[in-house]
Amino acid sequence: MSKQITIILAAVLVPVLAACAPEPPPALVIGMASGPVSLDPHTQDEGVTASILSNMYEGLMGFDPHLKVVPVLADGYNNPDERTWVFTLRRDVRFHDGRPLTPEDVVYSLDRARTHPDSVFRTMLAVVHQVRKLDDRTVVIITRRPQPVLIRMLALVSIIPAGFRPERDIRGTGPYMMTRYIPRQELSAEYFPQYHGPVPEFQAVTWRFIIDDQQRAQALIDGRIDLDSDLAAADEERVKWQNHLAVAAWHGSSVTCLNLNVGGDPRTNPLADRRVRQAISLAINR
């Protein structure tokens, strides 16, 4: 599915915008149709929330721009038998409060993600039997049965400091650290100078939440935001006519499902009629 995005991709700033410049330039302001549902990276998997938090939180593993799984907080890993995974942690990682990353943080994060009553990862991580510290740089994960895609699963789980409660604050290891959050209005973050990876393109980023499509497009035209990550099709033409703006579209990795309620009487629920469902299927441009 293609998504209309102006200038750059808002969802994941670091892989797309990573650069080697010694000093990042000024702030980027991104307009979005909605804000994060929660600041807790373990209790939601909603797209907007994940796209924002992914700039501040990281996992043991992650995805590169080509969606290949690569080590992030892990320096490397090995799989000595079909149920055992051994991860060596990087030495140069610090949380936004200055604390170094330790195996205790990884154990706490993965245990929280697989046992917290509101965690969206409980089912996915049910295959994990045990997470334990082996030494000061090593974490061992034992699964209940062979799970060859475990490293892909771990790319989705953010690592937080041991004992930290992330409901109202963000304390990750990512390239940006949160500086201001006004629910339903905006979230701002600055470059974390102790970040272990490449220096990002911008010194600071603000995500501004503007629900109305026309107001958000006008803010882009007026220069009050630099990017509209949710540009509506109805506003595309007037944005294209602006000499200082550009519209770009490309395929994303998200999947959209159309779920139909086919129960009940066709007289009250047209979708219960097979012919209606066939008509909908034929109308979809594949």
Rank of each mutant, 00 (worst) to 15 (best):
A279T: 14
G98V: 06
N55V: 03
V106N: 00
L134N: 10
V86Y: 09
T179L: 05
E186T: 02
V131C: 03
I151R: 13
P103A: 10
G35I: 04
V14R: 02
M178N: 11
I8L: 12
V86H: 07
A155W: 00
P146R: 14
D228F: 04
A74D: 02
R132Q: 14
R208I: 05
S109R: 00
P117I: 03
N243L: 14
E82M: 06
I170G: 04
T84K: 09
P15H: 11
L187V: 12
G263W: 12
E23S: 07
G76D: 01
Q242L: 08
L245W: 15
Q130I: 02
V199C: 04
I211S: 08
F164Q: 02
D40R: 00
E190C: 01
A283G: 13
Q214I: 12
L231C: 12
I141V: 15
S229H: 04
I7Q: 04
P36V: 01
A246W: 06
V69Y: 12
D45L: 02
I221A: 03
L227Y: 11
P80L: 15
M32W: 09
A19F: 13
R286N: 09
I151W: 01
V48E: 01
V70D: 06
M1S: 05
D135V: 13
R208T: 02
G223W: 10
P41R: 08
G47L: 04
E167W: 03
W241L: 15
P148F: 01
R171W: 09
L231I: 15
L271C: 15
I30V: 02
D118R: 00
R99E: 13
G172E: 00
Y195E: 09
N269V: 08
P22M: 06
Q214K: 10
G59S: 03
S229M: 09
P183D: 07
F87T: 05
T138V: 15
R83E: 08
R184W: 06
N79P: 05
I7N: 04
I5K: 07
D273T: 02
C20Q: 14
M56Q: 06
R83N: 11
D64K: 11
D265H: 13
L125T: 02
L28P: 01
H96E: 14
P71S: 12
S119F: 08
A126W: 01
S158V: 00
S119K: 01
G59P: 00
F63D: 01
I284G: 05
N259M: 11
N259G: 15
L17K: 03
T179P: 04
V127N: 07
R112V: 03
K133R: 15
R267F: 10
E167G: 03
F121Y: 14
P198T: 11
D273L: 07
T256H: 04
Q278N: 14
R274C: 12
K68E: 11
L110W: 04
D135E: 14
Q242M: 09
L134C: 03
I151C: 08
Y176H: 08
V106E: 05
A232M: 07
L60Y: 02
M56C: 15
I221N: 08
M124Q: 06
E104W: 04
I159E: 01
P117N: 13
T115R: 07
R90Y: 10
